Each structure stands twice: as structure tokens, then as C-alpha cells.
Amino acid sequence: MPSVTAGVVVLDCTEPEKLATFYKELLEAEETDATANRVEIKGADGIRMAFRRDVTATPPSWPRPENAFQVHLDFHVADLDEAERRVVGLGGRPLDTKDAAGPYEERGYADPAGHSFTLRRAVRPTAPKQG
């Protein structure tokens, strides 16, 4: 057994309840723990996230360099347009960025607290199975 295992992705924000609701709806997750200063959720795929109250939290300014990424999340989706409608309907906003080079089609967004994340179109392998 490894001595260190992955835990929970924690985002600092001024309103953890509000941000937890955004991600809970986006990921079709369930709330697993809540205190006055922290809310934790677990998605159907097992991802665990928590949202910690920090009354002095300021959103990242990405893509501007003065207060760059702080944290960045990638989520895989089958349909980018459908996922974008869902993000915007839940209170997220598209970020004005250039398309990233590489094998994935992706789009950048900010959650209601300003944390950036990317929706990446899930790409199925095209090579035949070996063995």
C-alpha cells in the first residue's frame, strides 16, 4: 500500500455552499460532509472535491499573468456544446481563450467563484485492442 494517496481537491472561496452546489450539479455529485467552513462532495465517478471558506479569497485572473492559475481542473465530456449550456445555466462563464494545441478539443470556463476549469472532449482510442 502506498504511503501517500490522493485525497480531495480543495478550492478556497468566500461562499463554499454556493460553489459546492455549482459543482454538485455539474458533476451529478452528492454532498458527503459539511461544516460551517467547508463542504465536501463526491461525484458518481469517484472524484472528491471540497470547498473551504476563506473570506479573503480572490478569484484568479487567468489568463492574465498578475494572478494566474491558482488551480486548474479538467473535466472530460462527450458533447462540448451540451456541457457548455449546462455550465452557463449553473452560473459558470466561458473564458475568452485561444484553442489549445493538441489532440483534444477543449474550452475554458470559470466557476461562479472565478476558478478556471476546462471541458475537454473525451477522445476514444482508435487503435484496435491488443491481445
Rank of each mutant, 00 (worst) to 15 (best):
residue 1 M to Y: 05
residue 1 M to F: 05
residue 2 P to Q: 07
residue 3 S to L: 14
residue 4 V to H: 10
residue 5 T to F: 06
residue 9 V to W: 10
residue 10 V to Q: 04
residue 11 L to E: 04
residue 16 P to E: 04
residue 17 E to Q: 13
residue 20 A to H: 04
residue 21 T to W: 03
residue 22 F to T: 04
residue 24 K to L: 13
residue 26 L to Y: 09
residue 27 L to M: 13
residue 29 A to N: 05
residue 31 E to P: 05
residue 36 A to R: 11
residue 36 A to F: 07
residue 36 A to V: 08
residue 37 N to R: 10
residue 39 V to D: 02
residue 39 V to E: 01
residue 39 V to W: 03
residue 39 V to G: 06
residue 40 E to I: 00
residue 42 K to M: 15
residue 43 G to W: 02
residue 43 G to K: 01
residue 45 D to T: 03
residue 46 G to M: 02
residue 51 F to W: 03
residue 53 R to F: 13
residue 54 D to C: 06
residue 54 D to S: 10
residue 56 T to S: 15
residue 57 A to D: 03
residue 59 P to W: 06
residue 60 P to N: 07
residue 63 P to Y: 06
residue 64 R to N: 09
residue 64 R to E: 14
residue 65 P to H: 00
residue 65 P to E: 10
residue 71 V to C: 13
residue 71 V to M: 14
residue 72 H to W: 10
residue 72 H to M: 12
residue 74 D to G: 12
residue 74 D to R: 07
residue 77 V to G: 02
residue 80 L to C: 09
residue 80 L to M: 08
residue 80 L to H: 11
residue 84 E to L: 03
residue 84 E to N: 02
residue 85 R to P: 02
residue 86 R to L: 15
residue 89 G to H: 09
residue 90 L to Y: 11
residue 90 L to K: 06
residue 92 G to L: 07
residue 93 R to C: 08
residue 95 L to Q: 07
residue 99 D to P: 15
residue 102 G to A: 09
residue 104 Y to S: 06
residue 105 E to D: 13
residue 106 E to L: 12
residue 107 R to K: 14
residue 107 R to G: 07
residue 111 D to A: 01
residue 113 A to W: 03
residue 113 A to K: 01
residue 114 G to T: 02
residue 116 S to N: 10
residue 118 T to L: 10
residue 120 R to E: 10
residue 121 R to C: 05
residue 122 A to I: 08
residue 123 V to N: 12
residue 124 R to M: 13
residue 125 P to V: 09
residue 125 P to Q: 10
residue 129 K to S: 11
residue 129 K to M: 12
residue 129 K to R: 15
residue 130 Q to R: 14
